[in-house]
Write a protein that binds this DNA or RNA. Structure first.
Lengths: 255, 255
DNA sequence: TGTAGGTATGAATCCGACT
DNA sequence: AAGTCGGATTCATACCTAC
């Protein structure tokens, strides 16, 4: 039996298709809808917004990154509340946010019925986005909580509330993808052999991390290109081979 | 002329006594009113609230740490709005918060008329308060912003948006005091030779850091015991001697 | 002065017992 | 019942003591 299940689907619809209390942790990186101050900025070509000037990395656009602040909060509360139903009582949840979205996400997570338990900064290192006369934005944040007040996490040790890891292009399969070591750290909050859910899986880094740490994975991704990359990465990981080796194996050797 | 001014006063009253546009930065650590889910926990003896059970740390209590969430936000907006008047246009502001108060402080800073510009985590190191099955609370947070939209910070270089510093016993003069190196880093956001304001000065670590970094200082503290400690530290720093040496000099050698 | 080993500590949180 | 109280728990590091 496969240790993962990955589908091409819209997040809310996918969540609705899952049974009550059928997963042990939710770990995800929902589209931030951050960046531009004006609606025009947010609606503009999303592909270019995230790439460093001068280096055009060809990555597919991704959907759902153009909501305003209020709509973003409302939409988060919607899927978070559906995720609560799907999660076993006592399950932990981790949601990424940049500094601008932290208050909205902490509100939304609570509006969705989860108990907010803290913030885990992800430190991207000193190189990240220096700018004159201000504090650099070198951190992103993981807002975390649990389903219900009582913790069911005795099986899990004490985890550090800060992750250091700078992003290498090597490990970057999605435009705003998170490094695998960061996800491996977060995944440890899920009880061993438990099921990790990621309804915004992208290139499935959460899933790869879950498999590497001995957890199982359930997730979905809407954008076709990312879904394809994610599927390859998951299968390569499940077979214990590199992505390149796996893909080479998929191609007919003698065309 | 003295490079600092430190008074025993209540914060809001002190702020009201200051002239418009008379300081160049606001850097402060207001009482969090956090820690404790119930009103009783928050209202309980502050001396015991923050220390390990069974060990009594001999430090004076401090005032104003018992507001509920809503009152805390309202009160912050009040003094923040008064601080905005006192700050020159373009001045930066830094306010400490623990994870629980971050959203309230980001709201309050904006309600007070400031432009919110980011979050700077202070990492206390891996030793901080572990507990089973959770991410440790090893960070506190500095919410920062500016007076008005246009930054007037060209005189200041690029500052790191994360501070690592473990609290040492030597450098801890207040029950919840911040390490001097942390404050030295923050104080650099103030233009050189500018005036740093701290209306919740406690043992005046902000002031000491300001002097060490070549800035001037204006502040107040309500609790008498901390006011006394702060005054000694500032004067010792201004004279370029250690706190112990300064205090020894104050005592008559032959009683 | 240096190293090794024991102890104390932390802006905490949980849970059962009690009012 | 909902709210409150108090004891027990967690571990990496700093600090202290002994050699």
């Amino acid at each position: 039996m496969s240790r993962y299940r990955f589908e091409r689907a819209e997040a809310l619809a996918f969540l609705q298709s899952l049974d009550d209390a059928s997963v042990d942790a939710v770990i995800t990186d929902a589209p931030y809808s951050s960046g531009g101050a004006t609606r025009g900025d947010r609606m503009s070509n999303t592909t270019l917004k995230y790439v460093h000037t001068g280096t055009i990395l060809e990555r597919p656009e991704f959907a759902g990154d153009n909501r305003d602040q209020r709509a973003f909060g409302y939409w988060c509360a919607l899927w978070l509340s559906e995720a609560l139903r799907v999660a076993r009582a006592g399950s932990p949840i981790c949601v990424f946010a940049d500094w601008r979205q932290v208050p909205t996400v902490t509100d939304a997570i609570q509006a969705g019925g989860w108990v907010w338990r803290g913030i885990v900064p992800w430190d991207k290192g000193p190189a990240a986005r220096p700018s004159m006369g201000r504090f650099s934005s070198r951190c992103e944040y993981v807002v975390w909580g649990t389903s219900g007040a009582s913790l069911d996490l005795e099986s899990v040790g004490c985890l550090q509330g800060l992750v250091h890891c700078h992003q290498t292009t090597d490990d970057k399969h999605h435009m705003v993808g998170k490094p695998t070591p960061v996800m491996q750290h977060l995944v440890k909050i899920c009880p061993p052999a438990g099921i990790v859910l990621d309804p915004f899986a992208g290139s499935a880094t959460t899933g790869v991390a879950a498999l590497l740490e001995g957890r199982r994975f359930v997730g979905c991704e809407l954008t076709e290109a990312y879904y394809g990359i994610g599927l390859d990465r998951l299968e390569a990981c499940a077979q214990g081979v590199s992505l390149e080796a796996y893909r080479a194996g998929q191609r007919p050797l003698f065309g």
